[in-house]
Design a binder for these strands. Structure first.
Lengths: 200, 200
DNA sequence: TATCGTTGCCAACAAGCGTTGACCAACAAC
DNA sequence: GTTGTTGGTCAACGCTTGTTGGCAACGATA
């Protein structure tokens, strides 16, 4: 469930020499991200991904091993969270909200991750991994009570994920209609509070 | 997609006389809620629901028409939101948070709805319906700026749904580990603010 | 030019799905 | 006691899915 099929190439220590199939691989990944984002894990079929990418389904299998491997590759994500210690303390909340709105709107990876995570255990693992490896450490650096970093990060995450759900996944009209800076000015202080308050 | 198959009984105006099959129907619904909650729409198979209920798959079809009808029946929910106008104004937030934690923990209906809504359009409709018909009107009665009732409700919903996602669906450890009153004392003021602030 | 790994297509497989219709047992009404 | 209705099983259908293996064209290397 967690191996790297890559391709029948050099068995080891091959520092990723460019392959003739790189364009195809990229097309597959892009199609996969779109399908996973639109349909979730089960309804996103390998056949549909292949069709979108303009190739045969068996190519997807060759390059990514199986459906789980395809999702693993398509859901790799680096949130690129900024170094929060160099952000003016009173702008932490707004900065984070803006960053997440950006990340959510740049491509469909986050939507795909959430849609899959909700009904697929491997997807849920992936999302928890993002939380543990990226969100939590980044927030810990500026958390008001260092030993509460996990729960504070969970609170921040709950507000950000919740807005993402309503606005980008469920497409609830009043959430979609909020304009960007409106979201920032509402959620910013909330995040700020979860992060910097000494006590609830 | 939106008819009521019920059963081959009186064609109309039959005020739901008890049927001999009521126990079976209830068993099917309970099994369905569990399966939808655990697996989402696609992976929750009619065969599995029938197995859990101890009957034949074709019974599910007879009583609920098809899979969509089964979900429609299993996802009927009344949040039973209290009349917020009779809640002391400064306790609005805490009251709402407690109510939602209760509702989420009483049975698996909410988890099922969220799990399905994320990958199934009918499920998403259902959840948006709950928002429009139950959450929004209830909150509108106490909204600080009446003409902003939709966006305020979306903000409140985003925080509540987000915590529900992390705590009951994704089972993110630090969100699961928060104890109840801790959640109330963090989210309460947030909800309170979204609801009663004149301005972000 | 001959070789060999790579890229791609095609056809098929086994399994699982939602759904259907025929059929039987128990009950209720007359 | 017969008859019609209801509750339930069984076996099958058509379809889609993930996945596999064989085979042909291509491109670099020798």
């Amino acid at each position: 469930m967690a191996d790297t099929p890559s391709s029948p190439l050099a068995p080891d220590a091959a520092p990723d020499r460019p392959r003739r199939s790189d364009a195809t691989r990229a097309a597959i990944l892009e199609a996969a991200r779109e399908r996973f984002a639109a349909d979730g894990y089960e309804r996103a079929t390998i056949r549909a991904v292949a069709r979108d990418a303009g190739i045969d389904p068996s190519m997807v299998m060759r390059y990514y091993g199986n459906k789980a491997g395809l999702f693993a590759a398509a859901s790799e994500i680096d949130l690129k969270l900024p170094d929060l210690t160099s952000v003016p303390r009173e702008e932490l909340g707004a900065t984070l909200v803006r960053h997440f709105l950006d990340r959510w709107e740049r491509d469909e990876t986050l939507t795909a991750m959430v849609r899959v995570a909700v009904t697929n255990e491997a997807g849920a693992d992936r999302l928890r991994g993002v939380f543990v490896e990226q969100i939590r450490p980044s927030l810990a650096a500026v958390c008001a009570v260092p030993e509460e970093d996990a729960s504070r990060a969970a609170l921040v995450g709950s507000q950000l994920v919740g807005m993402g759900m309503l606005r980008y996944v469920l497409l609830l009209p009043p959430a979609v209609d909020l304009d960007r800076e409106e979201v920032v000015s509402w959620l910013g202080p909330t995040i700020q509070h979860y992060l910097t308050a000494e006590h609830p």
